[in-house]
Amino acid sequence: MRILAVAENTFRESVRDKVLYVLLFFAAVTILGSKALGWISIGQDIKIVKDISLAATSIFGVLIAIFVGTSLIYKEIDKRTLYTIISQPMHRYEFILGKYLGLMALLAVVTGVMAAVSSVYVLLLGGTLEPVYFLAVLLIYWKLMLITAVALLMSSLTSPILGAVIVFSTYVFGHATGVFKDLPPQFDGTLSKRMLEFAYYVIPNLGNFDIRMEAANDVPVNPAFIAFVLFYGLGYTVVLLILAALAFEEKDV
């Protein structure tokens, strides 16, 4: 009940964040404006609309996760609302988990709204929606789950601005982890290679969550791959949440 109380409050608090509505506005403009690009590519307009809609859902979802997520704990300390909460008979990890679940509930609503808007738009334009489209939305949400856990960890450790920079870097590098592994031969045996290989194994491969092209082209995806990605995302998220809870457990507030 304590975790749910914190989650419910976090949801109510985040819903009032003006950043959320600015980002949602731009996401809606991007989704509805995607038809303009469709006109340029003759006969491909539905594919383009689906592709851009999923990209917008992903990018704006990530921006919300970063902007709201990195200030989740920091704001509580800065505004001193944390004092009367942490002094209650609850575990600190319950607070962290509650904050996380509250933001994930918000992101579920945001992702759901964006998916609903894009789906209705595609149908209005005469297109069809295959299950792979909704699987793509699910994987975007799963990616947001992981990014939010990184943001929460950063919020327990550092200021919102530095946290946002680190999470955004994780997001960018997470989409390009292959670069760390496939290095030219001149890197062999160097410290740089060892460090980049370490980064390859530590930074989550966010490319795994991206099945936009398959969704846009109505190409089915192997269910085993989806199961693997869900498990992969969940594993990373759990580890990150444990780290966030440990960081917060030791924190003086």
Binding site: R2, N9, R80, Y83, T84, M90
Partner: peptide, 29 residues
């Protein structure tokens, strides 16, 4: 902590809640 009631200096609470909701929130905690 169950045995302690704590009033910080200049207490801050969630501004969008009303007093009844605030008491309910801490009751849930």
């Amino acid at each position: 902590r169950r045995l302690i009631g704590y009033l910080p200096e200049q207490p801050y609470f969630y501004e969008y809640l009303n007093p009844k909701e605030t008491i309910a929130f801490y009751g849930k905690l």
